[in-house]
Simulated assay, not measured.
Amino acid sequence: MSPPALTVTDLTVDYGPVRALREVSLTVPEAGFAAVLGSNGAGKSTLLRAVSGVLPYHGGTVRSGAVTAGGTALHGRRADQIVRQGVVQVPEGREVFARMSVADNLRAGALGARDRKSVAAARERVLRLFPVLAEREKQRAGLLSGGEQQMLAIGRALMAEPRLLLLDEPSLGLAPIMIGRIAETIRAINGEGIAVLLIEQNATLALQLASYAYVLEVGAIALEGPAAELAASAEIRDRYLGVSQEATEEEIAAAGPSRTLARWSG
């Protein structure tokens, strides 16, 4: 049996005197799909930074705990070394290279590739998933719409041929129709065997996509369980995740009848 794509064990992270994460543990199975939900300031982005190795650039420090990907320890490795281990992050806000062309943005994602054949195969895969990028390869990335930039950011990450894709708020600032397209593509990427860890404030979207979900509150895991069970719980929707405020009536109806989780009764 293959090791999980990602295992986080008792991870504690500080920003100077501020404790951002407290003994956080989670698992993403090989080719699995997990989501982390929570409000602003809950520690979601900090978690991804700790996994992807960019935490020091944001002034954070891992105080204790362990992070492994495919059985390989990631703590202490540089961000580029973690990418070579197959763990690639798509940052919040997309952060494409605005003055570079779409084609050059994609090439930047493949800088660590070993041979041209693998780069060509990765590029073909990206353009199959995002045909609009093929149409606009020579266009400057900064001239793309927000949704197209998100496609480019995901495509750039896929050029590194990841085994685990870390997505930080991919729906942020996008129109509903574009959110739907991005969601379909994320589902397709996972269907090709790439594990996904999704960070999302849009709980409805996250619970529709993921198989398992974790809820972060003030830097700690407050709740976890199969995504379908969380989505079907009236307490989770109304009292905790605020899904009922974010979801349309059609989305709530699609989730099926509400159920009560035992731990929330009484």
Rank of each mutant, 00 (worst) to 15 (best):
A175E: 01
L6E: 01
I199G: 00
S101K: 09
A160M: 08
N190D: 09
G93M: 08
V51M: 02
L207M: 14
A108V: 15
L11E: 00
E169H: 08
A110P: 15
A220H: 03
S64E: 14
Y240W: 14
I189Q: 04
L127K: 05
V51K: 00
R94D: 05
R123G: 02
R99T: 15
R77C: 04
R163F: 01
N105R: 06
L209E: 07
H58K: 14
E95T: 13
G146E: 07
A120T: 11
R49S: 08
V87A: 08
G41R: 14
R123F: 01
L143A: 14
P91W: 02
L143M: 13
L216W: 10
L55Y: 00
A35Q: 03
R181I: 09
M1K: 04
L174I: 03
S101P: 10
L216N: 10
A157S: 03
R125H: 15
E224R: 09
A20H: 09
A121K: 06
R107P: 04
S258W: 14
R19V: 09
I154C: 02
V67N: 04
T46R: 12
D80R: 12
E217D: 15
P17R: 04
D238N: 09
D115R: 13
V243T: 14
S2C: 11
P162W: 00
G41A: 01
S64T: 05
I179Q: 11
G86V: 08
A134L: 02
G242M: 07
V67G: 03
A253E: 09
Y214R: 11
A141W: 01
R128T: 15
A5R: 01
A103S: 06
S2L: 14
V28H: 02
L48S: 13
G155L: 02
V102F: 00
A153C: 02
M178K: 02
A222Q: 06
T260E: 15
G191F: 10
A188H: 01
E200G: 00
N202C: 02
A35C: 05
L152Q: 04
V126R: 00
A262K: 10
A20S: 13
G71P: 08
I182C: 13
V96E: 05
S52T: 09
L164S: 05
R181H: 12
S45P: 04
A254F: 14
V13D: 06
Q208T: 03
R116A: 15
G32M: 02
I236E: 07
N190I: 05
G242R: 01
G93S: 13
R140P: 00
V96N: 03
L261W: 15
Q245H: 02
L166A: 07
G65W: 04
E23Y: 08
Q245R: 08
A20P: 08
Y57M: 13
E235D: 11
T12G: 14
A183K: 03
A195H: 10
A232F: 01
R136L: 11
S145A: 13
R237S: 15
L198C: 09
V90F: 05
Y240Q: 03
A175R: 07
S52K: 09
L11T: 03
R239Y: 03
L111N: 06
A69P: 08
V51Y: 04
